[in-house]
């Protein structure tokens, strides 16, 4: 008996079927080949990276010690960055509510409206924020307005996508109950949908706020205001020690913001 079992067991030497193993090996090989092909085609190779290593170290070293005197000058642009993020997040949070209701099939039963809204939101998300900022800078000139507009539109696409998908996964039976009491659509949303999605909604809002703080930094490079603008200037003047000081300010600010928002998020979920 035991001998027979052993014999059977000896056939089972692999967790996966032999065919699957071959397939995976082939795919893996193709990926590696493609990787080397891309390396040679784009002319990037690790050898130069290693050869240039001393240069990199030299550049990094030139950032130290950070110019601490520059920090007070970085505070105002930092505040501006946070203001851009706050305003953009507020706008997008407000606009995303109707948008995501229209893009959720649990609420919008009309297929036509549903598809139109979805497509529109998909297009919004396809446009990179830096492109939006460039366009708005050319339309409204340098300043915080183009930054706010770009981030509002960008985070609207993101928020509406997240929220509408959450609304699609709620328990529709709870909505049935509200409907069966004779509630109209607004009451169904307020009494049935809102309690079910509110924690996630707050969490998404905070997440998008964090994203916006970091994004508004990059947008500064194209003239959309905030701390990115001064990083750009100092880089161009080769004032690497100033850049380092700005980066440290930024790091502290981002850590503080993330800690607060994590605390808030844990409270609500």
């Amino acid at each position: 008996m035991t001998e027979k079992n052993n014999k059977q067991n000896s056939n089972v030497y692999s967790l996966y079927p032999r065919k699957l193993k071959t397939q995976i090996s082939i795919i893996f090989l193709i990926v590696i080949l493609f990787y080397f092909y891309s390396l040679s085609e784009t002319g990037s190779d690790f050898l130069t990276l290693f050869l240039d290593f001393p240069d990199i170290v030299k550049k990094l070293a030139s950032m130290f010690p950070p110019n601490w005197e520059y920090i007070p000058l970085a505070i105002d642009p930092l505040v501006e960055t946070i203001q851009i993020a706050v305003v953009a997040t507020t706008f997008s949070v407000l606009i995303c509510i109707p948008a995501s209701l229209l893009a959720a099939n649990t609420i919008t039963t009309n297929k036509f409206i549903y598809q139109i809204t979805r497509t529109f939101l998909n297009i919004l998300r396809t446009i990179p924020d830096i492109l939006l900022a460039t366009i708005f800078v050319s339309l409204f000139g340098i300043g915080i307005i183009p930054g706010i507009l770009a981030l509002t539109i960008f985070s609207l696409g993101l928020l509406a996508k997240l929220l509408s998908e959450t609304i699609e996964t709620i328990d529709a039976r709870q909505l049935d109950a509200i409907r069966s009491t004779g509630g109209n659509i607004v009451q169904v949303i307020w009494y049935g949908v809102v309690p079910q999605v509110l924690p996630q909604f707050i969490s998404y809002g905070l997440y998008v706020f964090e994203l916006n703080v970091r994004a508004s930094l990059v947008l500064g490079f194209v003239g959309a205001g905030g701390i990115g603008t001064i990083i750009d200037t100092q880089l161009n003047f080769l004032k690497y020690q100033n850049v380092m000081a700005i980066l440290i300010v930024l790091l502290v600010a981002v850590i503080i913001i993330e800690t607060i928002s994590n605390m808030l998020r844990r409270r609500v979920v």
């Binding site: 328990d171 039976r173 709870q174 049935d176 109950a177 509200i178 069966s180 009491t181 009494y191 049935g192 309690p195 079910q196 509110l198 924690p199």
Partner: peptide, 13 residues
């Protein structure tokens, strides 16, 4: 009025 198998109360309210 209607009563359901799964009560269908709004859980978080």
């Amino acid at each position: 009025g209607m009563i359901f198998q799964n009560y269908n109360l709004v859980n978080r309210s």
